[in-house]
Amino acid sequence: MALLEIDRVTRRFGGLVAVDDVSGAIAEGELVGLIGPNGAGKTTLFNVICGFTPPSSGEVRFAGEPITGLRPWRICRRGIGRTFQNLRLFPNMTVFDNVSVGAVGRLGIGPFESLLRTRAARDRAADVSARTWQALERTGLAPYAHLLAADLPYGRRKYLEIARALATGPRLLVLDEPAAGLNETETAELARFIRTLHAEGLTILLVEHDMSLVMGICQRVMVLASGRKIADAPPSVVQQDPLVLEAYLGTEEVA
């Protein structure tokens, strides 16, 4: 069964149709890319999946259950972790605290248990801390744990975004243009890292601009153009697809 199903989703903004009747599915364990030229509707589709924008029509199902119209935090707790294209860290908090927010997002915590420091509260705090350290280790950020997020080197901030999303314990990780602003070496490192995550069993949807990254690591690629899905196939096939070539012609080169 597909983990994420997008069923005829349309999203209009006034007269503009940003996403036009798009369907698709991601199976458990897949690493899928979502690409398209600027203004193709990638970000809008992304926002529909994560609950930031309700679809005008259509439905999104996760693990068989509809998640359309749920608030973002509920969708996150169902198991979709996300990163942001333009880094949205909590700058005045430490790296550890940033990631712990994701862990709390998963485990939940109430004010009164923190207040009374009950046994349950201490156990939960230990869980949060363990989860946080685990996410930090996985992303190689453990040495930076006590740095303020604002003081972290730029390349590391991407990993902090991912660590925070990992701490929410996602079944599906959705990455929004993770390679934006990285140079070639850094992009290659990121590609290796994403592959490792995938090899560890995580299902990943990669919304990306950087064709080399997507074509290099994804098993399957969905292509959006002008809000419509024009291709959904393995990278080697997509690269030969005349529709895709046409959509990118003059705007970008298919790697």
Partner: peptide
């Protein structure tokens, strides 16, 4: 908004 996306009500 980001906190919302991290699962916080």
């Amino acid at each position: 908004q980001c906190a919302d996306a991290m699962g916080l009500p």
